[in-house]
Structures are given as structure tokens and as C-alpha cells.
Write a protein that binds this DNA or RNA. Sequence first.
RNA 1: GGCGGAGUAGCUCAGCUGGUUAGAGCACUGGAAUCAUAAUCCAGGUGUCCGGGGUUCGAAUCCCUGCUCCGCUACCA
Length: 691
Amino acid sequence: MSSENKKAEKIIVTSALPYANGPIHLGHIAGAYLPADIFVRYHRLKGSDIVFVCGSDEHGVPITLRAEMEGITPQDVVDKYHEMNKKSFERIGISFDNFSRTTLPLHHETSQDFFTKIHDKNFLKKKVDIQFFCPQCKRFLADRFVEGKCPNCGSFGARGDQCEKCGTWLDPAKLIEPKCKLCGTTPVAKETEHYYIPLGDFQSKLEKWILKKDDWKDNVVNYCKGWFDQGLEDRAVTRDLDWGIPVPLDDLKNKVLYVWFDAPIGYISSTKEWAIKQGEPDKWKEYWCNPDAKLYHFIGKDNIVFHALFFPAILMAYGGYNLPENVVANEFLNIESRKISTSQNYAIWLDDYLDKYPVDPLRYCLAAISPESKDSDFSWVDFQARNNNELADILGNFINRTLVFICEKFEGRIPEPGGLSEADKDILARTNAGLDSLTENIEKFHVKSALSDLMGIARSANKYFNDNEPWVTIKKDRTKCANTLYTSAQIIKKLTLGMSPFLPFTSEKLRNILNIQSEFENGNWEEIKNKLLDEGSPVSKPEILFHKFDDKVIQKEIDALKSKVENAIENNGNEVPDKQEKTVEDISIDDFRKLDLRVAKIKSVSRVPNTDKLMKLEIDDGDDVRFIVSGIAEHYDEQDLVGNSIILLANLKPAKIRGEVSNGMLLAAEEGGDLALLKTDKEMKPGSRIT
RNA sequence: GGCGGAGUAGCUCAGCUGGUUAGAGCACUGGAAUCAUAAUCCAGGUGUCCGGGGUUCGAAUCCCUGCUCCGCUACCA
């Protein structure tokens, strides 16, 4: 109350813009959205002046590719997923103040303004690069738009960035018989010009800024340090595409801004859009440009570089904007010990869950396993346990037993207390202390601890209820019984408050049951915490807040995931390695026979340019001539090798090393940095098997 | 190979800048109670704090080294 005149803290919170070419899954929610929402919901109740923005990221190559393949326009693609994801977020209660999209004219203008101003301030430099150009489509082809024969496994349909079949990372230039993915024409290499932001010029400023941040999570700071150590390099901020924000300069007319240039600016545009909807178009500046306001980015760890380095550099270049107060990066969520893979459909899609099950248990579980400091694992069994014996048995049951008691023995009205005992006062004080710890943890982004504070309150409330045996005192000492139920009801009210950031839908139900909606709408956290329910005020008949999950339901979900894995293996041909499986020392003779070891003759040798250790060997394996790349240049000269026979592992999966494809591996013994090639002790024909 | 993170009870994890008998939840066992969603509460751990060295009066916590897992990266193949 003494702080009533103090100005409310101004905060802007962003969650990573979801990419509008697919639906939302649990990993997204756990990483970037739920932690932010919990933080925001708390701050709103605390009375902070907080705005929470997000939106769809609708530019970039994958969207155009998807559009071309489906024969629809990119706009159709983003329209579909924007609407779908927006609804998904509403359903799980992510309470954005504004959910915008980067195809809005407002966003285009904002991004172009950024580009123009940074360009005019001479922060950008223009460079020439070489890329494939399709003469038929009359445009440059992004890596993914080039298709051809994989130089490694020989299969057709490899993309310019990666071969779908063998998984090797490629360079479009290495594809055999490259074709334009869309029209099939053979592309030509052509020069192209782009603008780059020289991040190196910002390195010292960025370093100084980040190294001062002692409250940032270690993972974020360390990640940045890694980049600093390597030295920041120029990064292209324009692309040869026709889907995106046009470069606002005459010299690069048909190009667009790089999607990672415009996406973070989407946070600003989204705030602008919000301000316009508020009827105060300039209000966004209070959050972005006012030095007293604080900016928080909630993201997954894969986006650290863009939020901690790239975007801040852009903001520095532009000038007049706040840099983020904190970049809250979460680790990844696995599902049943396995990495989420959208391409293999190994995920739990949010809408699938919400179509079947209630929302708050999911929020609870995801918050409880929040991947704050390390990757965490969602398992259905764990989910069931948390729902059944934490939410239902401890929290739900305390509320239910109290309310049922009040309804049955006190005519559904908060009992009139008759002088609270020490025990009554004590539990109320400890409940408040629990709430204080909870809020402190939320402010520090410790979602897991905050949640266990909440459950701790419910636990001690149950104990209190047990210890005071109202079912006994109702018969012998009605005043004491009234005190116990009065106190328990107060705890329920405090729980209603404490759960609201995590379990907003349940909290809402309780507000209705306790008839305290208006208090939550008008009051702030401290007031609500301290104000007690009035004696005699009515309580509605309670409903069961959390239902238990049956074993059968859980088993069905587990089976569904298993079959997803099996499908993925079938489609992919090679199994996703099970990380539970340990490599054992002993192998069978059958394992050995999997190795195609044979004698091979070296026909010619050349050094791989610009490398210290690599040699490219042309060898005769008995059936054919192939190339392998080997790191032996420090130990052998070209002329020592030609004509020699070596032992070749012929069926090793091909790989690209420094741009050269290696189709096998030669065997050599190593001892403290010294190398010796393996040979047979008398001359054998190339192709002779090693058995 | 380099850099970073991690390795703590059966399981999931907490343990900040070193300090009394190393913690929580779940699971498990026994007991109390019966208002309540067969829910609650109490009691119970002999854990080589990954292995091995070292610094220190004292280390899960700091240093070195080895192993394993994850991420990024690279001139392993």
C-alpha cells in the first residue's frame, strides 16, 4: 500500500514467433510460450504495466517451397497456419496481448524502415556471391530448390542443402545433374549481390553488454561466448526470393529481406499493431524506446544467436531502442526419451492433445518439467502421475474436501470464526510465505520451483486439515470446526491466486465458486493475497477440478507414439539410434561380416586445397574406381602412396569432407600422433576380401 | 578434434559464490485417520554426490585427468 504512488513497472515480453508452415507441438509450448505466459500472468496481477506480444513468422524459403509443392500460394500457406496456431495458443491459454503476423503491411513498413535507416547509417555492406540461377523460372534458387543426384549415395531427389536419403549435408554445387526443383531446368551458376551486416563491427559492444549480464542464464551467456571466441562474421540480410519483404533500395529491386532480419522486428510491429488497437498508435514506444521499460525474450535455445547477438546488433545500429533485459532461453523437450522430429511426425501436437484432454493438467505438467537448465523429458506415465497424485489427490482433493464440508455442514457459507487458534494463524502465515516464495521464483524465471511452492501449500493445507479433524470437532466443538473450515477456505482463496499463472482455467472456476471474480479483475496480487474471504459469503457447490487419467488412456497414447517411431523407421530405412542402448565391447562374427574390408590400390593422389591434413585418393577397389578422402597428408607424400595397396573399408557411408566426397576409409594404425598404413604382407589383387 | 552443458537415492530432479549427520517429489514398506476424487497425514534410505588424483582444517560444490551422454562446431571417415 505504501507503494501505491510508485509507477508500475513497464515490461514488454515476447515469445519466439512460430513459423507459419506447421502446427504447434508440446516442445514449442514448454520452451517459449508457457514460461512467458506464466511470467506475464503473474505480472498482470501484480499490477505491472506489461505487454505480451507474438505473431506468425510468415516469410522464408520453407513456406514458398511448401506452397509450390501443394500448388497454392505462400499466402494460402501462412493464412492457414496463422489461424490454426493462433487458435491453438488461445486454447492452451497463452495470453498474448497481440498475436500479429509478419505479412502485415505495418510489419513490412517497420522492417523496411529498419533496413533503410541502418543502410543510410552505413552499417551494411554489399558483396557479390555465386548462386544457382534457373533460366526458366528466372530466379535464383535457394539451396532447397535445387535438386539432383546425391554425390554420396547416388540417389535422386537430393536437395541442395541435404540429401533426404543418406542425410548428408550438401552444397548445391556438389549435386550431380542439378535441376530446379520446380521446373526441372538445369540451373546455371550466376553472380548475385547482397547486403551483409558486419557483426564483427558490433562484437566489442555486444561483448561488453552481455558480459555484464550476471543474471542471464549460463546457457545463453556461454553460447554467446562461444560465438565471440570464434569471432562474429558478416551475415547476409537479403535474399534472392520473391516471397518476403522487398528490399527498399533501387539497386536490389527484386530481392527480399532475410527472414531472420525481419522476424525479430516482428516483435516491434506486433506491439505497434497492439497500440493501434488500443487507440494510442504511439504507445508502443513506451515499451521499446523508454529506457525504464524492460524487454524480455522467451525463446528456445536454438534461437539464442538471433536474440542475443543478431537482433541486438540491429537495434544498436538503428539506435534509440532498448536492448533486452534478459533473453530467457529454454532447453529442449524430449518425448518419451526421444527427440521431437516434426519431419518424422514424432511429436505430440497441441491440438491433438486439446481435442481429447483438459488444458490445465498439460500446463501443469509442462511447467513442472520445464526445460530450464537442461533438456527434459515428457512421458505419459509421468504426466499421469503428476495429474493423478499431485493435481487431483493433493491440490484438487484439498479444495474439494473443504468445499464439500462447508456446503454440507455450514449451509454453503464461509463459517463464522470464533477467535483463531495459533495453528490457524500459523497455517495462514505459512501459506502467505509460500506465495511469496512462489512469486519470487516466477520473477527469477524458476517455474519449476514456483510450482513446487504451490504444491507445498496444498500439502501443508491437507496436513492442517487432518490435524484439526473437523469431522470430529463438528460434533464436539463447533467453534473450533468453524475456525478450521474458515481457515481452509482462506487457503483455497490463496491457492486460487497462486495457481492463476499456471492453471488459469482452474483458477477461473474457483473464482466463480468462491464468488470473487471482481476482486481478481480489480485488485492486485498483494491485495488479493491479504484480503480474506468474508464470513457468511456464499460458496457454490464444488465440481471436481481434476479428473484422473486411466491407465488405459495413457497406454493408448504411449502405443500411438511407438507406432509413430516405427513408421518413421520404415520410411527412413535407418533406425533412429536408441540412446538407451550402450555400445558393448564384444561383437559377433556376423557384426564383423558387415564390414566390407578389402585390398585396394592407390592410382593417384592429390591434396585437398587449403587443408593441412587431407588427401584425396583415387583407388581401385577391384570392382571400380572410387575416391576417398583421408587425413594423412602430414604423414605421407603423394609419391610415397601412388601404386601402394591399402586396406579399404568399402561400405562406409559416404561423407563430404571439406567439400570433397569420400566413398570409404583407409585403415591405419595410430600411436601418439604417428600414423602407419595397413597393408598385406604380400601383394594381393585389388578387391581381395579381408576375412 | 575444439568449445559448451550434463553425469547426485529405483525414477524425475534441487543443491548459489566450498562448512554441522547430502535434499525434494514420485515409487516402495509400515502405521494413523475416514470429511474428501479408494483421496489425506505420519514414519522409514546402508545414496562410492561418474572414476582417479590434487588444493584445503574441511569439497557433490574449486583445480587437473579419464569415462559416458547431449548441443554447437571442425581439415575423423
